[in-house]
């Protein structure tokens, strides 16, 4: 049976005002459309009452546990990244001086790493100066500074490990 024009629009709320009133007048005279509308309403009503299921009891907890694990691994990667940067800075300090002085071929990257390393070096030196008493910037200073760097890296590593393996 071929359906009349407007039936679809009428049944999908795409009709209003005059057009809608026209179609409703048509419904009173057209048995085909009247039946189609009636059946569509029956299906629609039944569809809205199709039984719903509930979420399993631990659904939210399971999702949140997984979300927390994702976040921890993301944080851990951040800390790992920082540790790698620190090591790179240390290498920059150790190499920076020699490369520029001896070969004069330091790349921009090594230079900036060296600069970054130097400033970090100063910071660490200051910290170690406080820790170990007034320490002269003599031959022993790089040793202490290096040790402090390694200790710092170790702390970073332990933190990262603790975060990534944390179980709540």
């Amino acid at each position: 049976m071929k359906e009349c024009k407007g039936l679809k629009d009428y049944l999908t709320d795409a009709m209003e005002g005059q057009e809608k009133r026209h179609f409703e007048a048509h419904l009173a005279t057209c048995k085909g459309c009247a039946l189609a509308v009636k059946e569509d309403r029956a299906i629609t009503e039944a569809l809205c009452d199709v039984p719903k299921v509930n979420a399993p009891a631990h659904f939210v907890i399971t999702v949140m546990r997984e979300v927390a694990a994702r976040r921890r691994s993301r944080l851990a990667w951040g800390v790992y990244g920082a540790a790698v940067l620190l090591v790179a800075a240390l290498v920059g300090v150790l190499l920076g001086g020699n490369v520029t002085v001896v070969a004069g071929q330091a790349t921009v990257l090594v230079r900036s790493l060296a600069d970054f390393g130097t400033s970090l070096y100063t910071v660490v030196h200051n910290i170690s100066a406080v820790l170990f008493g007034a320490l002269p910037m003599g031959r022993m200073a790089p040793g202490f500074a290096g040790g402090a760097f390694l200790a710092l890296c170790f702390v970073f590593y332990k933190t990262a490990f603790a975060i990534s393996s944390d179980r709540r």
Binding site: V50, K52, V53, N54, A55, F59, V60, V63, M64, V67, A68, R71
Partner: peptide, 21 residues
Amino acid sequence: VDRYEALVNRYQKPIINFIFR
């Protein structure tokens, strides 16, 4: 991150019902 729970709580049922059907 804990605030995300509110969103899971709010949408768990519609999402599960959609996927279930």
